[in-house]
Every structure is written in structure tokens, then in C-alpha cells.
Design a protein around this nucleic acid. Structure first.
Length: 877
DNA sequence: CCCTTCACG
DNA sequence: ACGTACGTGAAGGGA
């Protein structure tokens, strides 16, 4: 096969500008030793690295604007006029960006009288000549270059930060705006461009321009038919501004035959000039890039150490005396994440002054604890596997970092960056990733372990200060740390899963799937891969010509709601829906779970304690928080989950806990009253919103609507969303929401206050001071901002409910121990816990779980717990 | 590796 | 003028 070349063309001026503003809020952090600001240089580098890794181009060119005046200013003197002066902090960085580009082995170019766009357009056309045929990716900060997209040119526009781009292709342009690339020029001709400062046609914005183009196809055709437009202000404007429209069209058109003096051969990507680049990084103070560069070029560990920071350590063997102090940290390394299966490959302990490392497990067993940790739960499980019981410390670096901020991950390398000097290399750098994951040499491994312990020790005080500042100390010591112990025990305990039961279900599924497959092939008139949405789309919407609803960015959507609409008119669709259901159960829950059953006949999930934005847990490897329940089809899977001998499964769940939390935090009298009366909350809302006097007069449909509103409110639902969900007109949904807020006025006040608070402080909190930062809450982008507002409304509710169950679990574990009961907590599913209870303890434990959960905290409304028991999880629900 | 789909609260 | 509910994890397809 022909090896296709890939050309990456970057609008350096606009990307640099984007980079500058992406890191503008941290401008003071980015300073070279010389005092030069480096945020744009750094951000530009990040973007570049990201693009080079993702696109793997063979050729790259970065084009810059040459100066203020261009051939366009000669045509229209106001072109790009009226722009705010570029900040000095930005301008001073441009020469360094160019220097960096050269050292990275990338070509850059600018041309007097022309813009970067024209250079890129010209090279793009050269790269499309039949004898060369490159794949071209153009990267820029604004939409002007969308006109260049075609079958082998993609335009990526920087969206957010330094890593997010929106990729424009002809298909995407058609889907988003129903325009061809050439029409995009006419769009700008009509609507003008405020940043390039040409006006287009008076009063014509994007919407009107799109309507005109959809109707007439081109600017020329609009004017050819302008007289046939019905009399309106718009028609007058079009006629009056005709000249400006065509001038704008010319200004908007990129010159693809500009007189550039370079060719494609000059854009070959040669790769970094390591020594020069390394020196440049020193000048800029980019220690992380330097470390990475050294690693990529296979330097010995010694040199890596020199580039990073050398942490001294002592290697300890089984026969050595060891010393450990309660203020020390310890850290245990495994390859990958699954601490139920992976072997310990080394460990370290110590403090910011001295660190010890070892690979000898007998040494690990001698470490008498408590000692500060990083991911206590992991250590507790790993030590348990070698017969050692870990002791809970008062501080855990991972949990502390998670509580301080959920915006980033909580890796030690991230802690190093945020709370130390950032010299710690990432695990990916040390161990590789994917298929290349491997244990490094002892030398590298030990250095890395020592550095981790050092980082944890150095960062502890700063992180405690941050927790103190946030009033989160007790959240760490009284919630997350004790919970880590409870979760560790649950994970170690595991839940029995019956392989035979799963196999029987699997057998039945296979038979059904093979029948369904045949039926679908028959109805479709051909064989195809039913699991492929792409192939399915072709069958349904091209071959069978069914009406397609929404489209995804890759093709037709075949999601359930779309298919459900088609089922009545095409029998094959009903079969496909049934196939999907069975196939989901088969692949994820039968085929997926069987290999997860360990030798002890149990499944041991891992709860991720430091991930969610709201404070909930998540469950992985396997996920036991999404075992089917809603449809009988999948619910059968629960028959495979069983208690230990002479025991029963007990499932206890909070009833409407999030709405109760809402009632409490909002202090809404009507909502509180409803819960105090133990009313059916959805019926109660229906009565209030639809003005129904008696509960028995509430129809099923009223209740369904009320239920949708009750849930929607805590997610910040909009009128449009509710209308769609209920299949009613927007206006009607609007009335329902409006009435809801009249009946529950304090809920309305609470939501407004929460949004205001979030905008002011940049974060929201749960009842227990857990925080969620909302960096987008003041975004100028309507969608992004609205999204953040919904998160602001939801996070305190979902998060407080999560915190409440965490408290209940800690209290319950304690009570079970104190009462010397043998019942064991097995699983947690957000508002529900599942226990394995010896039959003779059942009554006692049932009552204990209920009271413990209902009294975890005192709210203005009662907490209510429902319970179910059974000899399988299927029955206990 | 990203996208889509679908399982749960 | 813009798209649409919050929070997750896993599997399969296809580049």
C-alpha cells in the first residue's frame, strides 16, 4: 500500500494567541528565570506536542501573519482595524515561540502583505495536486479557514484549553450548518466578521445568512434573485449593501495562490534538535519538557536523575534493621491498577530527609504502622494478600488531593506539580503504557519510588493547609479515611458469583441471538454486522430508506429512542432492539463477568474513591454498580449473585434520598411537609403542580409528569428538556416548571442562590464541605456556562446524598464490629448497600442497618430505608 | 484510541 | 442565538 504523507499546517499567530489566553489566569506561574512570561510559549508547546503525537505528521509548517498591513488592507482600509492592542506580555513571547519551533525541527514561515491563512491555503492546494496527495490537517483558532475543508483536508479549531479541538470536515460542515466549503465564504460575506472588522450586510447575522444561503445557494444567486424577495427591511439592506457584500466576499476568500517562496519539501518534519532544545528548556524553566525529552532519547537513569531532581535513598534487604516513624510515608508499587491481582514490584518509605526502598516482601511485613499513605485502600488490600493487616493512618495523600480539587487527577506526579516543584516523572514515563507497560530496571524503579515518597512527604503540609483553609480536615479524617478501611474490607470480602448460572443464561442468550440474527438478515435482505452502527445505519436509512432522525458526528444515530420511533413502521427494527438487549446482557454481563470470578468463587470489584466530580464512588474491574435491574431480560443476571453458606443477602436502599436532601438544603416548607407526611412524593408534586385536591384524582400520567419534574429539577433541567422527555409542547413544559417553582418557592430560591454562589466563588459544596470546582461557570460561551450551572445545581445534591451513605457505611461497619456480628458489607450502589448476613443474625442486622442508615445524619426531613432479602441478589430487590 | 451505545443510581 | 438532565464503566466497531 502507498504510504500516504500527512501534512500539518498550523496558524501560528492565532494558536499562540489561544495558548496565551488558555493559560492567562496562571500567567504569574509561567515565568522564565529571566523574568520573561512564558504562558503562551508553554501552552503553544503543549498544543504542539499534543498534535504531533495524535496526528503523527510527516510534514509540518507553522505560518505566521507578517504584520499589520496586507493586500486586504489595500482593498478595505478598515480591515482588521479597531482591534485592541495585543498585550505586551503576549508580544514579547512570539520570538521565543519561533525559536522553539525551530529547535523542535519544525518549519515556520511568514510572507509580507499576506496572512497566515493565505500561506496555509496555498500549501494546502499544493498538497492536493494529484501527484502528491497528502492528508492535510489545518490547526487554527478561528473559523475563517473552514472554507478549505475537502475530502483530504480537515480543519481543527482550538476549542478549550490546549488539548480540545473541533474537527471540521465537509460532512461536519454540512451537518452543522448545511453548507459546502464554498458557501462558507458567502456566509462570511453576508454576515461579516467582527474580529476582522468587515461588516457584510447590515442587520444580517448568522441566522439570516444561513437562511438565505439554504434558499439560494450562493451570494451571486441571492443577488440574481434579490428582486423576487418579498418586500422587507432585509431586502432593502441587501440591495443597499451589495457592494460591501461582494467586497466582504473577496476579503473572506483565502488566497490559495499566494506568492510563497517555499514548497512542500521545505516542510518535512525532522524531529527535535535535542541539545539545543534542552538548552532552550533550561532558559525557559520548562523542567517537565526537559525530563520528557531526556526520557524519549533514551538517556541513562543517571542523566534523567540529573535532569530531574535526585532523591537519595538506601536499598534495604531482609536482613537489615529497619526504622520507620509515624510521620513517615510508605508507598507500594504494582504494575497497572488491579491490586487484587498484580504482584508487588517494590516499595519505599521515609520522609523528606531520607528514603528507604526495597523489593523484599519480608521487609514490608516488618513495617509497623500506622504510617502516612497514598491510597490506603490499595495498600490495605495488597498487604492483606501477604498476610499483613495495615493500620489506618491520619493522612492519605491521594484522598487529601481528591478533596482539595477534583479538577485534575490525583496522581503523585500531579501532586508534585501542584504542591512541589513538579520534578516527579509520570508513571507513564517510568512504566510505559498499553502493551508497552513494563517494570523498569531496579535503578529506575528505586529512584522513582524514592521520589514518590519524597514528594508525598514534602507536599503533606501544603495539602493540609489547603484542607484546613477549605474546612475539610474532618472530611478527610472522619469520612474518606475510615471509609477507605470499610471499602477495603468489602473488596477483600467479595461477593459469590455462580458461574453455572451465568453459563445457563449465556446458553439461552446464544440461542436467541442466533434466531434473531437470522430473522434480521431475512428482513434486511442481506447479512451484515448488526453490532456495527455504521453498517446498521446503511441498512436502515439507505437500503430500507427509513426516515433518519438525529445524526451523530460519524453518521446516522441508531440509539434506542431513534429505533423505537421506527419500530412500528419496520418489523426489522423491533428485532434489532431485541437483539441489542440480549447482546448487551450477553457481552457485558455474561461474557464480561465469568472471567472476573476469582478462584475463591467470588467477584472482587474495586471502588474508585478519588474519581467522581460529586464525591460518589465508582466501581471497576468489574463494575458492580450497573448490574441490570430495570428489564427482566437483564435482571436475571442477579440470580448469579449469592450469599455465603447459611446466609442471606440483604439489600437496603434509601428512598428518594436526593429529593430529601433537596428539601433539607433548600428548606422548602412544602417539600419538607410532603416528606414528613411520608406522602408519595411524585403524587404530592402532581397535586401541587396540577392543582388536584385529592390524591386519588391524580392520574398515572399526572404522576409520570410530576416524577419527571421532580428528577429534572435536581439536574437543572430546562423547559426544552422536559418537553422532549414528556412529549409535550415547550410552552406546556414551561408552565409546569413555572408552577413547580411557585409551589416550591424555596427550591427556586435555593437554585438561584447556588448559581450565584458558584459564580462568585467558583465552586459549590455539599453539606459536608466536599467541593466541586466549576471553572466554566462564568464562561462567555452560552452552552458551556449553562452546562456548568446545571452541574452547580446537581453537585451539592448528588454529593450530599453520597456523603450520607458514606457516613452510614462507616457507622454500620463500626456497629457490626462492636456488636460482634458476622454480617458483612459486600456492595455499595450509590443509595443502596448489600450485605451478606448469617441467617441467625438476619432480624437483628436488618433492624441495625435500617436504623443506622436512617440516622446517619439528622435532616429537616426523615430519611427512609427500604429493605429486601433473598437467597440471590435477584430476589433481594 | 475514539466513538457510540447502553447498563446503573 | 444556542442545544438541552446529573454522575458513572464496559463492550464492540473501525480507523
Amino acid at each position: 500500500m502507498e504510504n500516504k504523507h500527512k501534512l500539518l499546517l498550523i496558524d501560528g499567530s492565532s494558536v499562540a494567541f489561544r495558548a496565551f489566553f488558555a493559560l492567562y489566569n496562571q500567567i504569574d506561574r509561567f515565568k522564565a528565570p529571566s523574568g520573561l512570561h512564558t504562558n503562551a510559549i508553554y501552552g503553544f508547546h503543549l498544543m504542539l506536542t499534543n498534535l504531533l503525537e495524535r496526528i503523527e505528521p510527516s510534514h509540518v509548517l507553522i505560518a505566521f501573519d507578517a504584520g499589520k498591513t496586507t493586500f486586504r488592507t489595500k482593498m478595505f482600509s478598515d480591515y482588521k482595524g479597531g482591534r485592541a492592542k495585543t498585550p505586551d506580555e503576549f508580544r514579547e513571547q512570539i520570538p521565543f515561540i519561533k525559536e522553539m519551533i525551530e529547535k523542535l525541527g519544525i518549519a515556520h514561515y511568514q510572507l509580507v502583505d499576506y496572512e497566515a491563512d493565505d500561506i496555509i491555503g496555498t500549501l494546502d492546494k499544493m498538497a492536493e495536486a494529484p501527484d502528491v496527495s497528502f492528508d492535510v490537517t489545518i490547526v487554527t483558532g478561528d473559523k475563517d479557514m473552514i472554507q478549505l475543508v475537502d475530502s483530504n483536508t480537515t480543519v481543527e479549531i482550538s476549542k478549550k484549553g490546549v488539548a480540545e479541538f473541533e474537527a471540521w470536515t465537509p460532512e461536519y460542515l454540512m451537518e452543522k450548518m448545511q453548507l459546502t466549503p464554498a458557501q462558507f465564504i458567502d456566509l462570511k460575506a453576508l454576515m461579516g466578521d467582527s474580529s476582522d472588522n468587515y461588516p457584510g450586510v447590515t442587520k444580517v447575522g448568522e441566522k439570516t445568512a444561513l437562511n438565505l444561503l439554504h434558499e439560494w445557494g450562493s451570494l451571486e444567486n441571492i443577488y440574481a434573485n434579490v428582486e423576487s424577495l418579498k418586500k422587507s427591511k432585509m431586502k432593502e439592506n441587501l440591495i443597499a449593501d451589495k457592494e460591501m457584500a461582494f467586497l466582504s466576499q473577496t476579503l473572506a476568500t483565502i488566497d490559495t495562490v499566494s506568492p510563497i517562496e517555499i514548497g512542500l519539501d521545505d516542510t518535512v518534519y525532522s524531529g527535535p534538535k535535542v541539545d539545543e532544545l534542552s538548552k532552550f528548556y533550561d532558559e525557559m524553566g520548562f523542567s517537565q519538557f526537559k525530563t520528557k525529552l531526556n526520557v524519549q532519547n533514551g538517556d541513562t537513569s543517571e542523566e534523567i536523575q540529573a535532569a530531574a531532581e535526585k532523591i537519595d535513598f538506601k536499598v534495604i534487604n531482609a536482613s537489615d534493621e529497619i526504622s520507620v516513624d509515624a510521620n513517615d510515608f510508605y508507598y507500594i508499587e504494582i504494575l497497572g491498577d488491579n491490586y487484587h491481582k498484580e504482584e508487588i514490584i517494590g516499595f519505599a518509605w521515609g520522609n523528606d530527609k531520607e528514603v528507604f526502598v526495597s523489593k523484599d516482601l519480608s521487609v514490608l511485613a516488618k513495617l509497623t504502622l500506622p504510617v502516612n499513605t497514598y491510597d490506603y485502600k490499595k495498600n490495605r488490600v495488597l498487604l492483606n494478600r501477604i498476610g499483613v493487616t495495615a493500620t489506618l493512618p491520619n493522612y492519605d495523600g491521594m484522598l487529601a488531593k481528591y478533596l482539595i480539587s477534583t479538577t485534575e487527577d490525583n496522581k503523585i506526579s500531579t501532586i508534585s506539580r501542584l504542591f512541589d516543584n513538579g520534578s516527579l516523572r509520570t508513571d507513564e514515563e517510568i512504566f510505559g503504557k498499553g502493551s508497552k507497560l513494563a517494570i523498569p530496571s531496579d535503578e529506575v524503579l528505586f529512584a522513582s519510588l524514592a521520589h514518590k515518597v519524597h514528594t508525598l512527604a514534602v507536599s503533606k503540609d501544603k495539602m493540609l493547609d489547603a484542607l484546613e483553609e477549605n474546612e475539610q480536615i474532618s472530611l478527610l479524617t472522619e469520612m474518606e479515611l475510615p471509609l477507605a478501611e470499610v471499602l477495603a474490607k468489602m473488596e477483600i470480602q467479595g461477593i459469590y458469583a455462580n458461574k453455572e448460572t451465568l453459563e445457563v443464561i449465556g446458553q439461552e442468550n446464544e440461542e436467541r441471538l442466533s434466531v434473531l440474527t437470522k430473522e434480521i438478515y431475512d428482513l434486511a435482505g442481506e447479512e451484515f454486522n448488526i453490532n456495527s452502527t455504521k453498517q446498521l445505519g446503511v441498512i436502515l436509512f439507505e437500503k430500507l430508506n427509513l426516515p433518519h432522525g438525529k445524526k451523530t458526528k460519524t453518521g446516522y444515530s441508531t440509539a434506542v429512542d431513534v429505533l423505537e420511533g421506527l419500530a412500528p413502521i419496520a418489523p426489522v427494527v423491533a428485532k434489532i432492539l431485541e437483539y441489542r438487549q440480549v447482546s448487551k446482557v450477553q457481552s457485558t454481563y455474561v461474557k464480561g463477568l465469568i472471567p472476573q470470578i476469582a478462584e475463591d468463587g467470588k467477584i472482587h470489584t474495586r471502588y474508585v474513591q478519588d474519581l467522581t466530580q460529586t464525591g460518589r464512588l465508582s466501581s471497576v474491574d468489574p463494575n458492580l454498580q450497573n448490574i441490570p435491574v430495570r428489564l427482566e431480560e437483564g435482571r436475571k443476571i442477579r440470580k448469579a449473585f449469592v450469599p455465603s453458606e447459611n446466609s442471606t443477602l440483604l439489600s437496603s436502599d434509601y428512598s428518594q434520598v436526593e429529593l430529601r436532601v433537596l428539601a433539607h438544603v433548600a428548606q422548602d416548607p412544602n417539600l419538607i411537609a410532603a416528606f414528613k407526611e411520608d406522602a408519595d412524593i411524585h403524587t404530592s408534586t402532581a397535586m401541587r403542580v396540577f392543582n388536584i385536591a385529592k390524591a386519588e384524582d391524580v392520574t398515572a400520567n399526572d404522576r409520570r409528569s410530576a416524577k419527571a419534574v421532580n428528577f429534572g429539577i435536581s439536574y437543572g433541567e430546562t423547559e426544552y428538556g422536559l418537553a422532549r422527555r414528556l412529549g409535550i409542547p415547550n410552552k406546556e413544559a414551561g408552565t409546569i416548571i413555572k408552577t413547580y417553582f411557585e409551589r416550591y418557592p424555596e427550591v427556586a430560591t435555593y437554585i438561584e442562590k447556588t448559581k450565584r454562589d458558584a459564580k462568585e466563588k467558583g465552586f459549590v459544596s455539599t453539606m459536608f464541605n466536599r467541593r466541586r470546582k466549576l471553572p466554566d461557570i462564568n464562561s462567555r460561551n452560552f452552552n458551556v456556562r449553562n452546562g456548568a450551572e446545571r452541574q452547580a445545581i446537581n453537585a451539592p445534591i448528588q454529593g450530599s446524598a453520597g456523603d450520607i451513605l458514606k457516613i452510614a457505611m462507616i457507622n454500620l461497619d463500626k456497629a457490626l464490629t462492636e456488636m460482634k456480628l458476622n454480617a458483612k458489607l459486600l456492595l455499595q450502589v450509590h443509595d443502596e448497600i448489600i450485605l451478606d448476613v448469617p441467617n441467625q443474625e438476619l432480624d437483628k442486622v436488618k433492624a441495625l442497618v435500617k436504623t443506622t442508615m436512617e440516622n446517619a445524619v439528622q435532616l429537616s426531613v426523615p430519611l427512609k430505608v427500604d429493605e429486601n432479602t433473598g437467597t440471590t441478589w435477584y430476589e433481594a430487590k
